[in-house]
Design a protein around this nucleic acid. Sequence first.
DNA 1: TTGTAGGCGTTATCAG
DNA 2: CTGATAACGCCTACAA
Lengths: 347, 347
Amino acid sequence: MKKTIRIKDIAKMAEVSMGTVDRVIHNRGKVSATSMEKVLKVLEKIDYQPNLIAKTLSSAKTYKIAALLPDASIDPFWLLPKIGISQAEKEFNPFGIEIYAFPFNPYQSDSFLARAQEVIDFEPDGILLAPIWRQESLDFTAMCKRHQIPLVCFNTYIEALHPLSFIGQNLHQSGRLAAELMCMGRPAGTFLIIHIEEKTLNSVHLYEKEQGFREYMQQNGNKIEVITIELESPHHPSFEATLEDSFRQYPQISGIFVTNSKAYDVAQYLEKTRRMQLRLIGYDLVQENLPFLQRHTIDILIHQNAEQQSFLGISYLTDHLVFKRDIPAIKHLSLGIVTSENLTSYI
Amino acid sequence: MKKTIRIKDIAKMAEVSMGTVDRVIHNRGKVSATSMEKVLKVLEKIDYQPNLIAKTLSSAKTYKIAALLPDASIDPFWLLPKIGISQAEKEFNPFGIEIYAFPFNPYQSDSFLARAQEVIDFEPDGILLAPIWRQESLDFTAMCKRHQIPLVCFNTYIEALHPLSFIGQNLHQSGRLAAELMCMGRPAGTFLIIHIEEKTLNSVHLYEKEQGFREYMQQNGNKIEVITIELESPHHPSFEATLEDSFRQYPQISGIFVTNSKAYDVAQYLEKTRRMQLRLIGYDLVQENLPFLQRHTIDILIHQNAEQQSFLGISYLTDHLVFKRDIPAIKHLSLGIVTSENLTSYI
DNA sequence: TTGTAGGCGTTATCAG
DNA sequence: CTGATAACGCCTACAA
């Protein structure tokens, strides 16, 4: 029976017009002290909840959001965020959200710089960024601040880069989880951490996972040895050579932790060399990983929820731009554990 | 620059009035064949996307949804769905969705029947149901059909009960997953399946998990033995006695799979009797389970996503009632794996 | 069977 | 500075 309170009602109670109430609520100025007071007194008494539906219908404004992230045709991992962005676009389009993609080459920071400039020139109302290089990202953040464009980052946490919001995994914890899973049922052994294309891709990201992995191992066992190696792309001859070397030097290796989405490269090598007893743990449900998971060459994939990361990113920007809501400065997503038996439930 | 197409635009193109277009789009009848054809021809050419914002603003109708599920103060598991329902209520309230709870006692089907009748008398626009008893649920579904009230079910899948939509886990697959996790790192052993309060709670639910568990074990090892027992509430003296018996009869038990959220009851017993080497796998992030998971008495919890289940349930009803969208007849949620190291990321 | 007018709650505009 | 008034796109009612 209780009707919701409208601006009209407030106007009546405060004995002013709707226009004045609107001006007070959005403090657009041009209100006399007396009117101001009258309205504020009413607002204190009642709990005014603006009708978002009416608001968006009325203003009919559209917001341009620029999505600055790596080209999925260069690194397939980035297909996942693209999915989340599409979903978000569909969901928030009715609220006037439009998304424009600015893909860059994740192996060339020049490409990023060029695209970043394009984004600024584009004058978007908000930006979703997947930061890769520390310094370049910091510079870009500064630019956004200068132009007053709200920025939301996802996937890679970069210290001191203070966007409106960061969405991603707790990487340290993610490494600890990998370690726990590595030890499950066999609390001792020699484990190999592999960073693939670490120099060109984001090193901070991978290093934090390593730290977490080592920390857990140190706390939870004394008969554990952890070795780290870095590999180039599998097209590079050093890829196999380095792996061969490691197995020669540490024949007792019983588990491998690949710190990015490219476990499939290692899986392929393991199948070729018939090393099927190892426990292999990697990241992300990229297409390339799935067949290996299904036939147990990869035992476990940690799911970074890349789709949800980007979806939430757009969602937060929408909350900020359209609904003027507060959004969390940092949002850690769940660390999903995926095996052959629950894979289908995730896709 | 391209404006979105409005009903007004279609009316102009089809050379009829807005009213006629509206009648065609919502097939409310009372349209001549010629007008009908004119409008349909235009609709085929263009892709009309009705403006949901304007639609909900205009109709200003409110929808009452009845949530018929067990009382959380009797079984704590049901706190989780309650959380999801609250979130959904907050999110969809702007679209006119109002939710009314009808809690029943999950140990007494009489209580359910009484509440179910109340729900029908309440004449809601939609119903969210957590079915527990097969026959009672079937009867209730028939009632809803008769009264033309859309019904969405979650958590427990019941054969032949054909609601508008079912949301939950694939229970068979869930059992297979438990088995895979049980074997991880130790492919042989004797495993114990425990159903707690199976007679009073939903037996179908638990039985399907057992089937999945046994199927996986049968396919993946020959040195595996699986035993099933049923326990009453831990307050009942038979609880400990039955467990003691099992351990006496099968001293080599190396893993326990509790098929519902009450692994904490078993964990308590294991701690008391100092049996800490066993792998214990259970379900759900209920408060009672968490400390045991943190100190590794429970090794793994399978996360049924109870919050999301109920959230989606309300979300689907909203889609159906407000937006007239098609909703999936069945939605299987992901089978989450939770250990001590990724627990915090889930809560 | 058809067309039109009025209203949903807000915002924006423009005379007073 | 203030208060009316016209959008926003759709739905409901009612008159033709």
